[in-house]
Simulated scan of single mutants.
Amino acid sequence: MDNVKHRKRFGVVLFVIVILCTEYFVQPIVNSKTCLINMYNNKRNTSIRYIPDPRKPSDPLDTIRLDCGQLCNTTRKGSPGLFFDHITSSINCGKIFRNKNIDRAHGLLHAPKTIPKNMMIEFTMNNRIPVSKWYWDTELYLGKKAKKPVWSEQLIEDWINMAKQGNLSGTYGTADTNGLRDGLKHAPHIKNGRVMVIGSEIPWVEACVLEAGAREVVTLEYGSIISQHPKVKTIVPFDFRMRYLNNTMGTFDAIVTYSSIEHSGLGRYGDALNPWGDIIAIARAWCVTKIGGSLTIGIPYNHDHEELVFNAHRVYGKIRYPYLTTNWKQLYRGKCGQQIHIFTKSK
């Protein structure tokens, strides 16, 4: 009987010991294991947060290529046009305005002297465009003041009167000025229209546009300009991008550019190298132009012998011009040093 009682007491004591061991030894081990698992998971999750998404390129040029899409695919086929092939493409206006890399400066003390090897194929359109050298390093305007930072009302009015008389020299002489004036007569919706001028160191193009009857001119230029003429306003690329994204830019009846687009993306004016800089600039203009509106372009042109003269400018011909004017319908070809072409925007 005593042995039975002794065994029961021993069993109770053993049970208590097991419970205590579970509480003080097993549970900490379980907790430790749980803690280690949590630490591992936290570390793993933390690491995942910092792994770059391979679908989102980090290189500025790659982001531009991605957002530009088919517009920057210079192997697209076209159809015969009035002067050269007519090429079309979808344009995602939101993406090409949201991408801040398109408007970034190269940030160098001097303009780039050579085209990087990794960009050569894009700049030459798969070696279809020959490259020569003519280096400029005196005009880093982007983010700074323009060459002539103040345009007085009197200056512009004087130049309007000189244009009417056919005596305005502008930047390139009276022959070029009068060639532009002739082109503007064939460009729809200049008269009484809201017109954007792309690139202008001095307001000779603006004077010609006002002489042609425009009611308002908005000049887009790398460097900042103060216009004192009530019909002429000025913006820089950053303002253009932000106003478009904020829906405060509005639309234009016509776009005019003379000896400007051929420099886009070459770094001469402080802009970062961009093989499609000119194409995107004209595409953005397309985005803010009303249906039926016009585009007047004066750029170096040689139909059969185009060239990239780095970093000075491009000479356009039958190869690149169709991509530059993607979606624009060819209308008129004028006569002057930098040959005028007129286009319209159709549906």
Rank of each mutant, 00 (worst) to 15 (best):
residue 119 M to L: 15
residue 120 M to V: 09
residue 124 T to V: 15
residue 126 N to V: 13
residue 126 N to D: 15
residue 127 N to D: 15
residue 133 K to N: 13
residue 134 W to Y: 14
residue 137 D to N: 14
residue 138 T to Y: 00
residue 142 L to F: 01
residue 144 K to P: 07
residue 144 K to H: 11
residue 146 A to H: 08
residue 147 K to M: 12
residue 149 P to K: 00
residue 151 W to S: 01
residue 153 E to V: 01
residue 154 Q to M: 01
residue 156 I to H: 03
residue 158 D to E: 12
residue 158 D to F: 00
residue 158 D to T: 01
residue 159 W to V: 04
residue 160 I to N: 02
residue 161 N to H: 12
residue 161 N to G: 08
residue 161 N to I: 08
residue 163 A to V: 09
residue 163 A to L: 11
residue 163 A to M: 14
residue 164 K to S: 14
residue 165 Q to D: 12
residue 166 G to K: 13
residue 166 G to P: 13
residue 168 L to K: 08
residue 170 G to A: 12
residue 172 Y to V: 03
residue 173 G to V: 06
residue 174 T to A: 13
residue 175 A to E: 14
residue 177 T to C: 14
residue 177 T to I: 12
residue 181 R to Q: 14
residue 182 D to P: 03
residue 182 D to C: 07
residue 183 G to R: 03
residue 184 L to M: 07
residue 184 L to R: 03
residue 184 L to T: 01
residue 185 K to C: 04
residue 187 A to M: 00
residue 188 P to G: 03
residue 188 P to S: 05
residue 191 K to S: 08
residue 192 N to E: 08
residue 194 R to C: 07
residue 196 M to H: 06
residue 196 M to V: 09
residue 197 V to D: 02
residue 197 V to T: 09
residue 197 V to R: 01
residue 199 G to P: 04
residue 200 S to V: 08
residue 203 P to Y: 06
residue 204 W to M: 05
residue 206 E to S: 14
residue 209 V to I: 13
residue 209 V to L: 10
residue 211 E to A: 13
residue 212 A to P: 01
residue 213 G to D: 07
residue 214 A to I: 06
residue 214 A to S: 05
residue 215 R to Q: 09
residue 216 E to A: 12
residue 217 V to L: 04
residue 220 L to E: 04
residue 221 E to Y: 05
residue 223 G to L: 01
residue 224 S to D: 09
residue 227 S to M: 01
residue 229 H to P: 05
residue 233 K to H: 11
residue 234 T to A: 10
residue 235 I to A: 00
residue 235 I to P: 09
residue 237 P to A: 00
residue 237 P to T: 00
residue 241 R to K: 13
residue 243 R to A: 06
residue 246 N to Q: 08
residue 247 N to Y: 08
residue 251 T to H: 14
residue 252 F to Q: 10
residue 253 D to F: 11
residue 254 A to C: 13
residue 255 I to D: 10
residue 257 T to W: 06
residue 258 Y to E: 12
residue 266 L to E: 02
